[in-house]
């Protein structure tokens, strides 16, 4: 049979409807002619193969099925006897795992909060609540409620040094503060504990004046150098006469930063002054040199005074 013949056979079958194919497969001849042999063969296949086993074999099979079904029915009807412990065990393992997982998650969250607190993060009250419940105090936590309470309980006109200390104590929340009452050390300076800031101020003034005198050559700079050096000298003398000997610095309070320079802003260089004439320029140069020399001398004197006032701490 050629390929053309096979194709023709398939095309013949393609012309059959689904209903006619069903008839053909059930062994009945469809209306379309040319498929009689095929219908007969399919009917023959069914007749030859679609039969059960011999009677004895069928009896043995049915008996085996009934026995197997009885075993299956017994297993199905007795779930508590056979499956009780195993099902409990099967259910218990996931429950235990679930509990362990939950505990690990909670512990992880608590450790995370504790780590954040140790790193200096101020945690909200919700995050602190579990620790407070167990009496655990997290580090670096400002007590906003306590601070607010101190602020509310103190009238604005009564807020002095002790008020500040109360605020600090509430914010520190028992972490410890200065060993002594800082308010009792409030003396002539009125600036609280720590090294005397005026001493540093006098020294810094002197330094700044010296620097500006080195750079400045105009009359304005010269005048400002004189003024500031006098101010620094006066301040240093006042310090030397009024301040007690310096106390050792406490490690808890860092020394205050030197104050911002109060000298007038540095004026532009002399080259920027408009020349009027050569004579005028010469006079200006002489005056500038003279002023520079005077400024240097005065700044050195101010430095000496400042160093004496600071008790040897100066440069």
């Amino acid at each position: 049979m050629s390929d053309h013949g096979a194709y023709r056979d398939e095309m013949d079958l393609n012309e059959l409807t689904d209903g006619e194919l069903e008839l053909l497969l059930s062994g009945r001849e469809p209306q379309e002619p040319g498929n009689e042999e095929l219908a007969e063969f399919l009917s023959e296949v069914k007749a030859v193969y679609a039969r059960g086993p011999a009677k004895q074999t069928a009896r043995a099979h049915v008996a085996a099925l009934v026995e197997a079904a009885g075993r299956t029915a017994v297993q199905e009807s007795a779930p508590t006897a056979g499956r009780g412990p195993s099902s409990k065990w099967r259910l218990g393992v996931p429950k235990r795992r679930l509990a362990l997982l939950s505990a690990a998650v909670v512990l992880g969250i608590l450790l995370l909060f504790a780590g954040l607190a140790a790193a200096g993060v101020n945690l909200p009250g919700v995050a602190r609540a579990p620790f407070d419940g167990f009496g655990i105090q997290l580090p670096n936590q400002a007590r906003a409620d306590s601070v607010k309470g101190v602020i509310r309980s103190t009238a604005p006109d009564q807020r002095d040094c002790s008020f500040g200390q109360q605020i600090a104590g509430a914010a520190n929340a028992g972490r410890g503060g200065p060993p002594e009452d800082p308010c009792s050390q409030q003396g002539a300076h009125g600036t609280g504990p720590g090294p005397d800031p005026d001493r540093h101020a006098g020294r810094s003034f002197g330094d700044q004046t010296s620097a500006s005198a080195h750079h400045g050559a105009s009359h304005e700079t010269q005048a400002s150098g004189e003024q500031t050096s006098q101010a620094g000298r006066g301040s240093g003398q006042a310090e030397a006469s009024s301040s007690p000997p310096p106390e050792p610095e406490t490690p808890t309070s860092p020394p205050p930063e030197p104050q911002a320079p109060t000298s007038p802003p540095q004026q532009p260089q002399t080259s920027t002054t408009p020349p009027q004439s050569e004579t005028g320029r010469g006079i200006a140069e002489q005056q500038s040199q003279t002023g520079q020399a005077v400024g240097q001398a005065q700044s050195q004197a101010a430095k000496v005074n400042a160093s004496q006032a600071s008790g040897g701490h100066g440069p």
């Binding site: 193969y49 039969r51 059960g52 086993p53 049915v62």
Partner: peptide, 21 residues
């Protein structure tokens, strides 16, 4: 399912020709 023999005989009689064939 309840283990009755007659039911299994009926099922076997119904399906064995197709399966074995």
């Amino acid at each position: 399912r309840a283990g009755h023999g007659w039911a299994w005989a009926a099922i076997y009689r119904q399906l064995s020709p197709a399966v074995l064939g």
